[in-house]
Design a protein around this nucleic acid. Sequence first.
DNA 1: GATGAATGAGGGTTCATTCAT
DNA 2: AATGAATGAACCCTCATTCAT
Lengths: 211, 211, 211, 211
Amino acid sequence: MYPSFLKLNEEKQRSIINAALNEFSKQPYEAASTNKIVKEAGISKGLIFHYFGNKKNLYLFLFDYVFNKYSEATFENFDLTEPDVFKRYKQLISIQINIVQQNPAFFSFMNMVHIEKSPEVLSELETKQSLNGENNYDKFLKGIDYSLFKEEIDTKYALNTIKWVLDGLSNQYNQQYKESNYDIDIYYTLADQCATEMEEYFHFLKPLFYK
Amino acid sequence: MYPSFLKLNEEKQRSIINAALNEFSKQPYEAASTNKIVKEAGISKGLIFHYFGNKKNLYLFLFDYVFNKYSEATFENFDLTEPDVFKRYKQLISIQINIVQQNPAFFSFMNMVHIEKSPEVLSELETKQSLNGENNYDKFLKGIDYSLFKEEIDTKYALNTIKWVLDGLSNQYNQQYKESNYDIDIYYTLADQCATEMEEYFHFLKPLFYK
Amino acid sequence: MYPSFLKLNEEKQRSIINAALNEFSKQPYEAASTNKIVKEAGISKGLIFHYFGNKKNLYLFLFDYVFNKYSEATFENFDLTEPDVFKRYKQLISIQINIVQQNPAFFSFMNMVHIEKSPEVLSELETKQSLNGENNYDKFLKGIDYSLFKEEIDTKYALNTIKWVLDGLSNQYNQQYKESNYDIDIYYTLADQCATEMEEYFHFLKPLFYK
Amino acid sequence: MYPSFLKLNEEKQRSIINAALNEFSKQPYEAASTNKIVKEAGISKGLIFHYFGNKKNLYLFLFDYVFNKYSEATFENFDLTEPDVFKRYKQLISIQINIVQQNPAFFSFMNMVHIEKSPEVLSELETKQSLNGENNYDKFLKGIDYSLFKEEIDTKYALNTIKWVLDGLSNQYNQQYKESNYDIDIYYTLADQCATEMEEYFHFLKPLFYK
DNA sequence: GATGAATGAGGGTTCATTCAT
DNA sequence: AATGAATGAACCCTCATTCAT
């Protein structure tokens, strides 16, 4: 896949990837402009098509690239022997905060991907996401200790509740980040607050679910 | 506002509104095409600008229109004397299912609005939403009976948990609806399933939170 | 010509004429907008076409209207018994300053007419101007006393020199008026200065040309 | 500035410049159509924007281009040691006739520029013109021999008179050229006549002003 | 491999004019 | 007489993509 691109030195690759991530983070797929990408990357118009064939391929390449980086980072640092689902989430959160601190563009790009509606890329995005996404959540849950839960608790509901509370919280903070016009400094403050508040929700939910 | 448009007979208004909602539901603001709207509505290119002046106004008109329909339907049918927050949610859900059954496009449009990123409309959307949105959640909670909760439960966390579980569930079903390519028949099936599953989550959460 | 328009009461006629003069003073013919004219005049879109048929007719009507007002005012107040061409010019200048003070829009409109290049109206404008314009200059010169000039002076050259010096001066002041963004207060100041300076040029030229 | 355009071979450049000069000579800025320019130049719609970015840049480029050609030609051939202002004017006239004979479009374009009213380009045109224009008239006068004038003549008035007589004459011939619908053959005849008549006015004015 | 000139469809918008009311 | 809804062509400009160099 894209052998001519991957033959480039890392520096060049990164500058192109960053330019593209940046553009696709600000605009949804259709409104994003390859013109702006090549300008920011400092390469010629034709080259991006030489590397990726067309806009769609470039976009899907970015998705795979970011997704893989997330996966790698996660499964390098994730302790799958931890039986407590809450502690697993804590790990996950700290890992993801780490990734984003190193690659702030990943976060905004993935946010855009999640809300992408353009029919041109939607279907392919969905198959990728459903393939990988479910796998990952399954992996994440694999091996947790269900005996920590009270007997009367239906763990399916409990696990979803935990997940959605975290989703809700992060959406709330996302919203604030959006309202700050994506100020990166504010992002770091919000990320801290969000992590703290997640802990509070863990303290709230844990005694309800666990023995 | 937009007197020339509002003078049209309902039939014509609806055909234009539907065409516009449909387009703005499939594409984000910037990628949506007024050309396609007028073609679907069967009117001339110039006419949409005669009615609304420009694309942005049309979009914001649609937002107000849908928002008002939601609000009207909700506050006509909502029983604010109900003290039990779970029962309030049940009311709200059945009301919203009703609205959407009558106006399927409302739903997809509002979904798009929530994720809109185009700077051209974002700020105005935000002021509208923050003005109205917060009021509404406050109104929704006003007068609920907090004494139904166990004493050791922090109601702030509990109420957010309920909200986010419902959000999570409806996002999950949204996703399935999206994957069906917005097949309206599938929508009705999913809406039923979603309502049922919401009840299940209420059964799960209620004994945890309530005395 | 335009009987339906001329049947209107004077008030209404004037409001339409003023709105049209104003628009055609700011933009050249093609760029001027009938939309803006009807809006400023407070009449309906169709009415202006009911009165004048089309944009071109409206424009040519305005030209005739303004031209006639100029002619009337001039030949009402002009003393054709005055033998001294310099004094005739002084009269003319003071008459024209008067007209413009009463109808500031006339001036800017005529300025625009003189530089109009739009092929749609140019030819008709030219025939009107050449018909009237030459007549007028001939009338203006009729009966002046050539014996006031030195014998060695070729009066054809002298008269043109006087005319062009006045043209040059007024162009110079026009330019300043333009640079003031057509500030009407500045206009009055400039008109005064211009009149004074014209006198100075008369003082300069008179001893050269006259015995 | 506009490197992609300037890289073209001269032939192509000239065909585009000519098409653009032609259109901007017939219509004022706002009414001129890039569509017509590209059609006449035989290039695609997008290309003109590839070269110049937008209509305004194209227009201002043309202004600079023509202005520079004028300046170059003038200051290559102009003899600044000539003390007699009349002879300087004769030089200038013959130089300008030469330029225009080689580039007939220059003349009409500059005529349009001088009367341009469109606010979109007016201010920038004015700064360019005031920067260059004043300098040029000053340069033109620099070093002329004022002692040639009679002592009782105020040279300020005299020099302006000469200038305005030439302006008036050329306007008169312009008008005739315009009435010929810009027939280039007629132009050459008129240019000759105009040059001759200018000489006549010099013969008329010289004995009045000079010792 | 790398460039950027070239394309033409499509974008939103304004316009003069028509015509049913 | 008077309205303004309706039209569609034309406006400037951006776009993803191609291709000769």
